[in-house]
Design a protein around this nucleic acid. Structure first.
Lengths: 233, 233
DNA sequence: ACCTCAGGTGTACGGCGTACACCTGAGGTC
DNA sequence: GACCTCAGGTGTACGCCGTACACCTGAGGT
């Protein structure tokens, strides 16, 4: 009875506690602020204590990815393959968007973690159940790539500045990069509205996803095979 | 006349020399071995000397990306848009494959560099010349994402082990990940050959690229627009 | 003879991941 | 109760990193 009074006597660490603290820290302070030292501080413990629960920082990151990927919902049963895959991927996207660091970390993993394998296995199963051959499914999975987890490398990145500053910047760019500016302004060659419309990331994602899924479907219907593509449009 | 004898009198540094030494170092020793200190050593100079030519390490990496992206060949004139885009992207792919670190670094850039903007601008131009509306081109560029530079996130990564070790590993995995193993063995449900076929990355890349390009073409022909998709197959 | 100033130097700081030896205390065994 | 074990937490230290800041040096201009 005496031993609960006095010093608060931290709850003992565990791999799960370490991982969820790491996720929380990355969520709050950004992935760049996640260091073994800061994490140990959050847990009220000395840095080296973490190494009793994770082998090293890489394994910590692996574990964090597993936590997030584990949050992806199961497939909806009873709908056709395309709707099922679409919903599942958008569910993955929601899970990853809740943790902005997750996609960046997922990209850097060299070895797939169990939750990732589970996810991939079940996604393959969805294609197979939808009538895709092993061969086609294989290529289709590659074609999806990271889009299967609901994200894609964004290379455009609107810099987000005040409207009139942005207008000035675009005017200056238009000499060298006329096409980029045209797209930023969404005008057909001549200067129309001067507001730079942002991009709706969700729209772009679904646009590309549906394009791919439709392409997959066409190949499936055509009985496509990598060894002999019976090709005609 | 006297001043050329004695100590060899290093050629003076320049931004270009710094960048090309950095590229060489990353090529030889891997991007993880690229530190300001090692780079300065290669150049026979003290670490802080580099900061007279690049503001900081991020800007160094920006410059390195610019060097590689600058190596991408110009578009072939006189072919239809699809062939032109295809060739250009495959040229980008060759450039990036010559420097295995390049895609990883390109992904982490937050601000587009001039060579990247040049490339994107001219790629947009190729679509515009091919009859794509500004609107459609915009979405198409997003759909390409990093594939426009010839790479995609690979999430499968064959671990490359001795054949019989790999066979054992796959047998062990097949309980939990039956679909993945089926694809690794490229068999239809029953165990056939036990050799795990590797993946032909180039094939996978072109497969997905052509799927997208074909999709783009269909939308173009259909007069697709984001505000009103006149949709039927 | 003097000034300027681009470009190279030297030192130092605070951060990082983690190897390694050590301690501590709860649980098991006789 | 005396002893052992060993999982889990500690403390110290090493070598690496990026880079701030004050300084020097020497060629070119006046």
């Amino acid at each position: 009875m005496a031993h609960q009074t006095g010093t608060p006597r931290r709850a003992p660490l565990s791999r799960a506690r370490v991982l969820s603290a790491a996720v929380a820290l990355a969520d709050d302070a950004g992935i760049d602020s996640l260091s073994m030292r800061k994490l140990s501080q959050d847990l009220g413990v000395v840095p080296m204590a973490l190494y009793k629960h994770v082998a090293n920082k890489e394994e910590l990151l692996d574990g964090m990815v597993d936590v997030i990927v584990g949050e992806i919902g199961p497939p909806d049963p009873g709908v056709d393959w395309k709707a099922a895959v679409r919903q599942r991927i958008l569910s993955a996207r929601r899970a990853l968007l809740r943790h902005p660091w997750a996609s960046r970390v997922l990209e850097t993993r060299t070895t797939p973690t169990p939750a990732v394998l589970d996810y991939q296995d079940s996604m393959i199963g969805m294609f197979r159940d939808g009538g895709f051959s092993v061969d086609l499914t294989h290529h289709v999975m590659h074609a999806l790539g990271s889009r299967m987890f609901g994200f894609t490398q964004e290379l455009f990145e609107a810099p987000s500045m005040e409207p009139h500053v942005q207008a000035a910047a675009l005017r200056q760019m238009s000499a060298r990069y006329p096409h980029i500016v045209a797209i930023a302004l969404r005008t057909d060659h001549d200067e129309g509205s001067v507001v730079g419309l942002g991009c709706d990331d969700q729209f772009e994602f679904e646009f590309a996803l549906d394009l791919l899924l439709d392409g997959f479907d066409r190949l499936r219907l055509r009985g496509w095979s990598s060894t002999a593509d019976l090709s005609d449009a």
